[in-house]
Design a protein around this nucleic acid. Structure first.
Lengths: 210, 210
DNA sequence: TTCAACTTACTAACTAATCAGTCAGTATAA
DNA sequence: TTATACTGACTGATTAGTTAGTAAGTTGAA
């Protein structure tokens, strides 16, 4: 009924604890097993309160995803503000992105659930698309600032995005793909890109055939 | 009760149609919405038949995953048999892996569901780990055969595995990450590796500082 | 060859539990 | 007095799983 309006009163402490509880249940039991009862127990409210604030279960799940993405976006933004050098900023952004899926125990399993969920839910799909586009845009921006041309920067941004997600999946299942190995791969890719920028700045000054 | 034994009679036409129906429901509605009723309708049997053949819903889902992995493994094996050249074999293997998650409409959304599911299910986790390990082992083998040393081959194998999965996720949500872009990334990585093998074969014959 | 005992492969009908969502009512504060 | 922020008790629908029964073989001894 409420349509596009955000439920009741945002930043309310109860609705926030319901969101927190939802994210917790998602991480611990998975969306498949997420029930209003389970969330209500985690948030220490009645199940009716969930419906009062979020109307339906679907809207609750979507709201939880929105909250997670918003938080991450804020974290990335503040990380990017402090860094001047394009390559350092890029690496810092990768760090926040990768750690958000990798290190935080709570968040680790929520991300692939968002991927799955957005396969069947239009709104979640748009949310994820927007986040993905912004991240790639950040990477592209940094690489252009570092001296790469736009086309190469875009492709490299896609590659980095893919590696963040792919290495996370790998590290979940491979006995290899430790944190160190992941970072050695990231750094090797970044080193290659750094070499390319220096090449294109020097232009064709290195045609030294004897 | 049956414990470790595989349910009733494998390759039975009814149990096979139940597996097919399960995979179909997984793809169309997601595991979250998968019910025995839905599967029974797809397979054109009663819900009791599902319990007769697979005991519980969990075992049914696991069996469907096993079937999917087995099929893919067979496909990869036959693809690898026909190819002699290590780099061509590697590329061919990537192709089958990437297309299995990417192109086939039915399978596309099942993979991330297996990732999620294996986050909460030990057996599914082991299945996925085994598949992942074998794939990486294939890549490592090919790269060693091409002339790379073991350590580098292992890292490159991790990177390629990550790219297969990561680019799939990217192409689901990014308006970019088209099939062509994905392949240009794969081919660039392969070209880099090919260059490295030729370097290490020539050893240090290219120290041509003027 | 035949018939009884047994197994396999199911189904229709059921059940106990669980679920999302509703509603009437209460407390607090503006 | 009116709106907000809830709760406890409920409901109707749906669910995984069970059960009793049936039809179609298969086996094996007389």
């Amino acid at each position: 009924m409420a349509g596009q309006r955000i439920s009741k009163q945002m930043a309310n402490s109860t609705s926030q604890s319901i969101i927190d509880g939802t994210l917790l249940v998602m991480a611990e039991d998975g969306i498949s097993n997420l029930t209003t009862k389970l969330v209500s127990q985690r948030a220490d409210v009645s199940t009716a309160a969930i419906h009062y604030f979020f109307d339906t279960k679907d809207k609750l799940i979507y709201s939880a995803f929105v909250y997670m993405i918003k938080s991450l976006r804020a974290e990335i933004l503040s990380a990017r503000k402090t860094e001047e050098d394009p390559f350092m900023r890029l690496r810092h952004t990768i760090e926040v992105n990768f750690n958000s899926t990798h290190l935080s125990k709570d968040a680790a399993l929520i991300w692939p659930q968002l991927w799955v969920y957005s396969g069947y839910d239009q709104k979640a799909n748009r949310l994820l698309k927007a986040y993905s586009a912004r991240r790639k845009s950040n990477f592209t921006y940094d690489l252009c600032a570092a001296g790469l041309d736009r086309a190469k920067a875009r492709t490299a941004a896609t590659k980095i995005s893919a590696l963040i997600q792919g290495l996370w999946v790998e590290s979940l299942f491979g006995q290899s793909a430790t944190s160190e190995e992941c970072w050695s791969i990231f750094d090797a890719v970044l080193a290659d890109l750094a070499q390319e920028t220096s090449k294109s700045t020097k232009k064709n000054s290195s045609k030294e055939k004897p």
